[in-house]
Design a protein around this nucleic acid. Structure first.
Length: 475
RNA sequence: GGCCCUAUCGUCUAACGGCUAGGACGUAUCCUUCUCAAGGAUAAAAUCAGAGUCCGAUUCUCUGUAGGGUCACCA
């Protein structure tokens, strides 16, 4: 028997930016499709014209592209199920609506929105779940497109189904209701449209957040009414906000993923982090490329409980990915952030081992931690004193350092040689810091900085000696 | 309120019903050239509670508790 080709989709609504929750859903669907050499579809569910936010389709596209979550079919590139915007597929939903009407499984809603609202309020007051079907009219009129079209649930029963992640799930009959298929504005609801499209697009695996679990019986009864076998469901655990309580939502500060790009995170690190938020490979690996994720990914290892967004782990993963960059990639990226005076090859390791994301370079610059590499520092004496060493002693040590460093030929003024020279003096002292600290301070003017040897090499012999001299004059 | 889902270190997580509950981030301490960073080592840190089944329960069952989701002409 031939295996059916795996088709997954990501179907966002264009109501704003994408946050990590949406991205992770997209990622898992993508990974599963790629792992099975299947198809990953991007479909835009723009059936709510009220909530639609201008520009969000492009924003979503840009986010996915940045992360390398590439779709095989969808906006911009087309495919065999074009178009990929639901607002352009209205005829199709009408066709399916007609099928349901003909089968007696759909009817126009005779009530106004206000009247239904009254039913709902009453149910809420009585602490009962609201069920429209308890108000289902006896006889149905002809649908004239001005009223919403409702689904007539064929059979009110408890549903049981299997979820690829959660296993056997079930819901009571109160999960079933005569939901709206087509709104009075002519657009289908999510409940209806996504099912029609999943059928038309031959989607085999539906991955989405667990907020949809309680709607699944509705979907199943719709499939039943149509006489079509539903796809497989893989429900994803929620991502919680930083407080660990609520599901991450735009309302409580979920970040636009593109903001992570602006802060200087690598796309692959972001993907790596999100993949691990709710899934694990079953071994101790933590750092993955997209290709490695595709190999390792498996629905059966997706977790069941909510995971909390954790920026510190993301920083660590990003740093690990930075370490994997080639020399050239690292150089180009770091130089993007540096002023021309600092575009020195030797400064790259100094920066790269002090940052976890590119944006940290901006902060280093703002804190003026790198200025001394191209600018004579100002000396603030408070930062100088090393333990109980007196000023005179410090000057004396600086002189010693100068005279030793003068002996090194300019061509050989390397970190190693500077280190040897200075350590020779330092080791003779009771406390090595008595010379290492003043020298470092003379070169950088900072209480915290890279070590003096590497700075000396970058500054060169002349500048190094000149700064030692200036420091002596200024203390 | 009904229905549904979930529960292992602070966080992400691992553990056919069977070793001392493992790893990672973060934290702390030590080492490595004064500081910072990087690196190395070490440490502290968890099975929500109570019953039941079993020789044996983090794992299975029940109850409780806590958290989350859902009950739209939103997706």
């Amino acid at each position: 028997m031939e295996e059916k080709k795996v088709v997954t989709r990501f179907a966002p609504s264009p109501t704003g930016f994408m946050h990590v929750g949406g991205v992770r859903t997209a990622l898992y669907a993508y990974l599963w499709a790629k792992k099975n050499k299947g198809t990953f579809i991007l479909r835009i569910e723009d059936t709510d014209k009220e909530r639609e936010v201008e520009g969000s389709i492009n924003h979503i596209i840009e986010s996915l592209k940045w992360l390398g979550i590439n779709w095989d079919e969808g906006p911009n590139i087309g495919g065999s199920h074009t178009p990929y915007l639901q607002s352009e597929r209205l005829d199709l939903y009408k066709k399916y609506a007609q099928i349901l009407i003909d089968k007696g499984f759909a009817y126009p809603d005779p009530y106004t929105e206000e009247e239904v609202g009254v039913f709902r309020d009453r149910a809420e007051l009585e602490k009962k779940p609201f069920l429209y079907r308890e108000h289902r009219p006896e006889t149905f009129g002809i649908w004239d497109f001005t009223k919403p079209l409702r689904f007539k649930t064929p059979e009110i029963k408890s549903y049981k189904w299997n979820d690829l992640v959660y296993g056997d799930l079930s819901a009571g009959p109160e999960a079933l209701d005569d939901f709206i298929l087509i709104k009075s504005d002519g657009y289908p609801t999510y409940n209806f449209a996504h099912i029609v499209d999943d059928i038309e697009m031959s989607v085999t695996h539906v991955m989405r957040g667990q907020e949809f679990i309680s709607s699944v019986p509705k979907f199943l009864s719709l499939y039943d009414a149509l006489g079509i076998k539903p796809p497989l469901y893989a429900t994803l655990p929620p991502i919680m906000g930083p407080d660990g309580k609520k599901k991450l939502g735009k309302r409580d500060g979920a970040k636009d993923v593109l903001e992570y790009r602006n802060e200087g995170y690598l796309a692959e690190a972001m993907v790596n982090f999100l993949a691990l938020l709710g899934w694990n490979p079953g071994d101790d690996r933590e750092i993955f490329t997209m290709g490695e994720l595709i190999d390792a990914f498996d629905i059966s290892r997706i977790g069941h409980s909510g995971a909390q967004m954790n920026d510190e782990k993301l920083d660590w993963i990003n740093k690990e990915h930075i370490k994997k960059l080639s020399e050239n990639e690292l150089k180009n990226k770091i130089f993007e952030y540096l002023p021309k005076e600092l575009k020195i090859d030797k400064i790259i390791p100094i920066i790269s081992e002090r940052i976890s994301k590119w944006g940290d370079i901006k902060e280093m610059l703002e804190r003026r931690e790198l200025d001394f590499f191209y600018k004579q520092p100002k000396y603030e004496k408070e930062k100088l004193i090393y333990k109980n060493t007196g000023l005179e002693k410090i000057s004396e040590n600086l002189f010693k350092a100068m005279s030793e460093l003068k002996k090194i030929d300019e061509k050989n003024f390397s970190m190693e040689n500077v280190k040897n020279a200075l350590m020779q003096i330092a080791n003779a002292l009771e406390n090595r810091g008595e010379i290492l600290h003043p020298v470092r301070f003379a070169l950088s003017g900072l209480d915290k900085s890279p070590d003096p040897f590497v700075i000396a090499e970058i500054l060169g012999k002349n500048e190094t000696l000149s700064r030692l001299q200036k420091a002596i004059e200024n203390i």
